[in-house]
Amino acid sequence: MNQTMKRILVIDDDPDFTSIISTILETSDYEVIVASDPKEGFAVAREQKPDLILLDVIFYGDTLGFEYCRKLKKEPETAAIPVVMVTSVGDVYGVDFWPSDPDMLPADDYISKPIRQVDLLARIEKILSEKKSGGGA
């Protein structure tokens, strides 16, 4: 198994988004796995244990992303995998989040669409290097 190539699981229902992210990540030598709905994504995460997960917030009009992020963090097999949630409104505390609900912030990091290549790659690198040096969660 090629240990040097990091694997990133992208869970998003927008096929153009996953296509764009895949192109960006593959160009930087990441291996990309794509899932179009969170249930499928959860199953893939358990099986394949990627090094990082990019998870969209909204699926089918509901904030299912949060629910699955919490699931990933609870499940022992996937709890150690860093999750970056992708929101479609600029600020983490913006319209996407019900203001007073503490349950709404389970992920390791947040990034908002539209995603700039430079920004995305930098964050991913940071998280992966922290994970390596920090050991398992």
Partner: peptide, 11 residues
């Protein structure tokens, strides 16, 4: 609405 308007533009 915000999400659905931003998605195609983002793509």
């Amino acid at each position: 609405v915000t999400h659905d308007l931003k998605a195609p533009v983002g793509a």
